[in-house]
């Protein structure tokens, strides 16, 4: 482990606790004994090469897949709880912005964002519409409520997905590869949006990405996973990791050096 710099609210009661989590698919163990805390208000970025278990870890944290052993607590609630009331509470605390937006193609943007509000609150229609307009405004999509998702560009779909994820003002927002497939300018715009929402609403954010630029832009703290180690091999401020990391895997990742390239000595 590399020594780390301070990040927001370190030492406060963590929002997410991943406790000795072992998970995988079928017989395959991908993560073993992972221990992780996410503190309120921070942007935690999970990085690592392909197949290192980033997505597996996120799916565990949002309760989509069952772990082999260990547990994940979000705001003190086990994400794999069977209790209906607890689960309802949990669903309101978590928002997920999926890689391609995962908007429902048969609904307009407005209907997509309104869906969680209709399900989890008892607000009347016009109040919901007003909140939907506000949320779309937050992601710079004001006026697009009657558009269908496939009439929009990839970047807009992602932003709309973010608006839907934020519909209930969750405590934690998860992002799966927010800048994947976006042009550099749009990607930076999305980074700025993520940062401003984090700063304004103090939402805790867990972001999966391997875009270095984006990592340096948004991360308060980075954890790096590794395929062979089946867990976290480094954690800390990304700039610090880039300069100071001793572990070659970490150093190579943050300095864009493929491991093999160095051995060959051109």
């Amino acid at each position: 482990m590399v020594a780390e710099k301070r990040f927001p609210n370190q030492g406060e009661k963590p929002v997410i606790v991943v406790d000795r989590l072992t998970a995988g698919y079928g017989e395959n163990i991908i993560l073993e004994d992972v221990q992780l805390e996410v503190y309120p208000g921070e942007i935690l970025v999970i990085v690592g090469g392909s197949g290192c278990g980033k997505s597996t870890l996120m799916k565990q944290m949002i309760g989509l897949n069952l772990p082999f052993s260990g547990k994940v607590l979000v705001n003190g609630i086990n994400v794999h709880t069977e209790d209906e009331t607890e689960r309802g509470k949990l669903r309101r605390e978590i928002g997920v912005a999926f890689q391609a937006g995962a908007l429902f193609g048969s609904m307009t943007l407005g209907e997509n964002v309104a869906l969680p509000l209709q399900e989890y609150t008892n607000l009347p229609e016009d109040e919901i519409n007003r909140i939907v307009r506000m949320k779309l405004g937050m992601v710079n999509l004001a006026g697009y409520e009657n558009y269908l998702p496939d009439e929009l560009s990839g970047g807009m779909q992602k932003r709309a997905g973010l608006a839907r994820a934020m519909a209930l003002d969750p405590m934690v927002l998860f992002f799966d590869e927010p800048s994947a497939g976006l042009d550099p300018v749009t990607a930076v715009e999305l980074d700025i949006l993520i940062k401003s929402i984090n700063a304004g609403m103090e939402i805790t954010m867990v972001v999966i990405t391997h875009e270095l630029q984006s990592i340096f832009n948004i991360a308060h703290r980075v954890i790096m996973l590794d395929k062979e180690a089946r867990g976290v091999i480094a954690a800390g401020d990304p700039r610090y990791l880039k300069e100071q990391a001793q572990d070659p895997r970490v150093h190579n990742f943050f300095n864009r050096l493929p491991a093999r390239l160095k051995e060959r000595n051109f």
Binding site: R130, R133, M134, L136, G137, M138, A142, I197, G200, M201
Partner: peptide
């Protein structure tokens, strides 16, 4: 912070 995120024009 929360109020600054709301764009009155968008409404």
């Amino acid at each position: 912070g929360v109020m600054s995120l709301i764009d009155p024009e968008a409404l």
